[in-house]
Design a protein around this nucleic acid. Structure first.
Lengths: 245, 245, 245, 245
DNA sequence: CATGAATGAGATTTCATTCAT
DNA sequence: TATGAATGAAATCTCATTCAT
């Protein structure tokens, strides 16, 4: 990744080693797969890892195909181009995230409890899906030019937003949430506090001289997010400090 | 950047066009520069833009040298390797940021006012330095492997932290801030809420179907950060919700 | 054709746009053709255009199959190889030309008039069949190696030659044509003057800074050919200038 | 050439074997040339042969570099792209032709004699430069899209045209040429009759069942061209057949 | 009759980098 | 200090073609 030259030298990784590509691919090349779906999936899976590891330009068709146990030609057969494959990877990554969110059922819970649950689930998702963080980070580095070419991704509306809207209206009706709250802002607040921790973990760990990937820090930060968000949602006592969320 | 193929097609940028490399380099090739410092600076400047635009692996020595108005050989002369140049760029970017923070003098201000000011300044810095966001994003994609090779960057301690510690102790002595607050967390909170907005602006604008680069959104979010942070710093009335920050 | 890179840029054609492949193939993929003859013909037709546009090596099986609305495998099914298809295209092109010539009936005409007619017909054929010019040009670039592999093409004898022999003998008996004339030479003269105009039209238009594809030039040149040929056929008055034709 | 697959099989050439690339390149790779001009020239020379042999798309950068005794990278170093190299080859080929024509000095000769001389020289040039014929043929197959990108080639005006104008005016003043003659047409007539013979030699030899590359045929055709042209230039006796040339 | 899956070789081009002056 | 020349490796992608159903 990083660079051809560098990758041959010793590279020490910290934390997300799972992203590192195995040097030896699985070599299930025993006699050609002849299974369209399996080949497609193998390519997509390998691509997800490589793109997450090196970003769009850091990944290479060659490595992806080797990791997938096929040849480069098959990638063009199924995905037309490097960009086509990249977009497919992004689409799948977003779809998985949306699926995870859709699995949530917070309608029966106490709104404050539901917020706690939601934040925890999002946090867990970020934590367990460093490739998602990396892919989206890569895409932002590219100013989202690839995502904009995807029809599917244009239509993906965040289920989080509707969940949040529900929670907010229920909470404000019950008098436990402020009434002047916007689902967009609440979403951005939760996402920002969780995302940044993981997306910038490596430089932050260096900057703060503290390993953010280790356990006490992780748990504490989750609790912090919950506390900050709930506080900001609480109805203002007497004198309000302008608009909050 | 991104890829040879892509770069030839029409690429629409959103907001941070300053990152886009000019096709025509400055061509001050009037007959060689013969000015060591100027050449070094031209290279560094060009490199900053290219690395910010395409990340580490998306940038190329060739384009950097062309943009700088020198030849590739000069880059090796001054910076030894692509990675050496990249590290130099990171070092300069961090140094500039630290300088900007050091320019702040909040000691005479009311702590709450000082927090407002600090958040505004940080926000402004992020907003005006998209290359900084991009460079750090790129470095996180690379798991900070380059930063770790820099001696200078290991030593950089955030001046923000000391500023925050001062503010926090002054504020809690005055009884307007909670007493159980950690400068690290406060810093991460402010940084997260500001950084994420810019670092993920492109995908978020697509995801939320709303242009975050435009003005009403920008101003509103800054006010939001200030409100959230101040609220979270305020002493808990009566029954505290566990530990906040 | 020419090259991947080039084909994506703007290519301005001059005159023979009909050779340019449509980007969108006819897409009669409504659910497989299931008509042997139709598929064969579609392939042959698509191949003619592609080979005419890019020559033998400039054309590709992939583009041909897409243009024909089938898949690449079908080409191998019907024509065995790229070369087999190319030869089939050449055979068809020559056969069509021979058919066109056979349709001529000049036996009743005045020989001079018949020559005029013949030249006009040949000229018209060249003009209306730029693919024929291009295909034969391509084949000459390849030193006719493919044509030599075709049994059919070895046997094709020009009907023009017999027509010319007839005309020449009739004309010399009538005393209006010279007696020392060879049908081969007459054919070559007519062909050369017409063919060159079209085969080299693009470079000539550039070289002479004059658009040979436009109308006044076209008509004038045809008249010129007729005049030159008839003059060269006319019996020498008094002192002959050695042998003419 | 023709095709990767074919070229490995036995290819029989007829006549212009000089165009065939040697399988073993000269391998003067003894330790790198370090001579800019020599390398450039070696590449250009090799390219001329390869492009002449296979046309634009039939030639490959790999073969050219091997034939030139360098590596592929150098071609991009000096000529930027395959097309850049191709254009350079065309430019050189045209320049050589123009030089050859400029060497002619026909002003002192009898106009009829000068025409004979000019036709012979052009004929000789075509005969001795099959690569020129092939290159221009290739370029016409590509509809002259590359030539149009060359500034140099746009400016090349045929010295032939001025030579011809001189001869025509001298001849008509002397009363031995017709007065209604156009240098463009005369040039096209001479060029067509000579060019076609060589450009289509391979298919014609097959079509007419006669080897046009052999000696009697060659000499006879040259004499034929001279005779036809001179006859067409001669003043019309009494009753003219409309406009001639 | 028709087609989807697979492939190795080779295409053009760009990469980061070293050599030599 | 500066630069032109050279290079091998790898990048993305297309080639003609065969396998298997």
């Amino acid at each position: 990744m990083t660079s051809r030259r560098l990758s041959s030298k010793g590279v020490q990784l910290t934390g997300l080693e799972s992203l590192m590509p195995n040097v030896k691919p699985k070599r299930k090349k025993a006699k050609a797969i002849r299974d369209s779906a399996a080949t497609r999936a193998a390519i997509l899976n390998a691509a997800k890892k490589e793109f997450a590891f090196g970003g769009y330009s850091g990944a290479s068709i060659g490595k992806i195909s080797r990791r997938a146990g096929t040849n480069e030609r098959m990638i063009y057969y199924y995905y037309k181009s490097k960009e086509g494959l990249y977009i497919a990877v992004l689409e799948q990554a977003y779809a998985e995230m949306v699926d995870a969110e859709n699995a949530l059922d917070l309608d029966q819970m106490d709104p404050r409890e539901a917020i706690r649950e939601l934040i925890s689930v999002i946090w867990k998702y970020y934590r367990e899906h460093p490739e998602f963080i990396a892919l989206v980070g890569s895409e932002n580095l590219e100013r989202a030019i690839h995502i904009k070419k995807s029809r599917k991704l244009k239509k993906i509306a965040s289920p989080q937003l509707r969940i949040l809207e529900n929670l907010l209206s229920r909470g404000s009706l019950m008098g436990i949430f402020r009434t002047d709250i916007d689902a967009h802002r609440l979403f951005l607040t939760i996402a920002a506090l969780g995302w940044f921790y993981f997306s910038n973990m490596h430089t932050l760990s260096n900057y703060l001289q503290k390993d953010l990937a280790r356990e006490p820090a992780l748990h504490e930060w989750l609790q912090h997010i919950i506390a900050v968000v709930l506080t900001s949602l609480a109805p203002t006592q007497s004198k309000s400090s302008k608009s909050i969320i």
